[in-house]
Amino acid sequence: MNTCVVRGAWCVALSVLAACGRSDSAGSPLSVRYPEHVAAGGNQPPAVEIKNPLPTDSVNASDGSKVFSAMNCDGCHGGGALGWVGPSLVDGRWRYGGTDGAVFQSIYYGRPRGMPAYGGIMSPGAIWKAVSYIRAQPVPVTVPTESFK
């Protein structure tokens, strides 16, 4: 059932952002390079660097912010993607890779420790909007490890 489940005001918003469905021209990559992984024997597997096809601008980031809420991402990752039961997405630290392609795959296919796969209900275009939002957030200069006085 790959139906569009988004209803009401948010459906309108999402429909404007990207048509619900799976036919977006950006397509879904088969194999994404994870530069932080160790390659056995020093040989990288055949893979591609996937870049966000959307321009890096405030419009895409703002649209992506709406996608982030409409898809209930904030329910686990917290308002502002600051972390809740799921990890922060704005601290510059990544369990499954922080490149455009890795973040896209995390959303599209999901991840084993709880991240749902959204590729069945979000178009690649909408996912790229969410990636645009996440990657537009400022990364703290310092790690928020506490110094107690």
């Binding site: 489940v5 209803r7 948010w10 898809m71 209930n72 329910g75 749902p116 209900i121």
Partner: peptide, 10 residues
């Protein structure tokens, strides 16, 4: 406002 998407927070 929030939309129910089965398997995600509501």
């Amino acid at each position: 406002p929030v939309t129910r998407i089965a398997g995600t927070p509501y």
